[in-house]
């Protein structure tokens, strides 16, 4: 019983990071129908930017974080304006290849600038801190890592903000309109180009937070591979076009992975997420939470 709850907790914690990556990908996918494979590296670059600010310029952690948020938004906007806006005449496949290319460019740049050896981010919370919970359920002690709790809380707050943004603000609603029907959104006076740019900015920002959270454990150029892949899996599992779907998908993957690692095999832990995708897509091809709207003809 103890093991099970403990694994559940760590599954939820890793699920939170996947959920943020998944959200970031879904936000872009919904407006432009591109699965953004550069998402991981768009989170990697700001993480190293923060490391640089702290390590070379000796800025305090929180100020570096705020500057990094600014940098991530800037990066998202620039990628949209410089690369994808120009490429919009090409087809979706071309755009996907472009995102893969961007991913390699960013990865190469980070490796070249900072080197491939692992570094440690001076994160205020160490991965070894924990909050012991004694006698939680009749005589079982539970150990919750402070960092795990922190990750979960940040992810939750961010999800709530994103939800409120899409539901109640002018730009959020305009974004929803652009996602559903771009031509009409333009005819209604919505500047869809600016909306596209904001989409990339927001997505980059969400990814950046995921990157910073991951970098608290390990900081090297390949650190975002796994979260990105899992986030993408979660998004596919959730239906690729549904924000809550990607979050639920991410927690499913996080928890199952952690349970698999605990009971069966640590080495094959990462295979689980891909197995789940294969199974789900065989049974429900549109994903678990996709709403399908059939246009009347």
């Amino acid at each position: 019983m103890f093991d099970f709850v403990q694994m559940l907790v760590s599954g939820i914690a890793s699920g939170s990071a996947y959920a943020l990556m998944g959200l970031a990908m879904v936000i872009i996918y919904k407006t432009s129908k591109i699965p953004n494979f550069a998402q991981g590296e768009m989170a990697l670059a700001p993480s190293f930017f923060a490391y640089m600010l702290i390590d070379s310029y000796h800025l305090p952690f929180y100020i570096a974080c705020i500057l990094t948020f600014g940098f991530s938004v800037f990066l998202g906007c620039m990628i949209e304006i410089i690369v994808l806006r120009k490429a919009q005449k090409s087809n979706v496949l071309g755009m996907i290849i472009i995102t893969i290319g961007l991913e390699m460019i960013l990865l190469g740049f980070v490796s070249w600038k900072f080197g491939a050896e692992p570094k440690s981010m001076p994160f205020p919370i160490s991965p070894y801190d924990s909050i012991p919970m004694k006698d939680l359920i009749k005589g079982t002690d539970l150990i919750i890592g402070t960092l795990e709790l922190f990750t979960f809380t940040i992810a939750l707050i961010l999800m709530i903000i994103i939800f409120l943004f899409f539901k109640f603000t002018k730009f959020g609603i305009a974004m929803k309109a652009t996602q559903q029907n771009q031509v009409i959104a333009r005819a209604m006076g919505i500047n869809t180009r600016r909306i596209q740019m904001m989409t990339w900015a927001i997505s980059s920002f969400v990814g950046c937070i995921a990157g910073l959270l991951v970098s608290s454990i390990t900081l090297h150029p390949y650190m975002m591979w796994d979260p990105m892949l899992k986030g993408f899996s979660a998004a596919v599992l959730g239906g690729m076009a549904s924000l809550p779907g990607s979050i639920i998908g991410a927690y499913i993957i996080g928890i199952l992975e952690s349970l698999f690692g605990g009971y069966i095999s640590i080495e094959f832990k990462s295979v689980v997420s891909l197995m789940i995708i294969v199974v789900v897509l065989c049974i429900k091809p549109s994903g678990l939470f996709a709403r399908h709207y059939i246009k009347k003809v």
């Binding site: 002018k170 609603i173 305009a174 929803k176 029907n181 009409i184 959104a185 209604m188 919505i190 709207y293």
Partner: peptide, 17 residues
Amino acid sequence: ELFPYMNTMENLMIGRH
């Protein structure tokens, strides 16, 4: 050409954007 995942009110409110 409507926004299919929105209700009538929301569709009309987009016009007020």
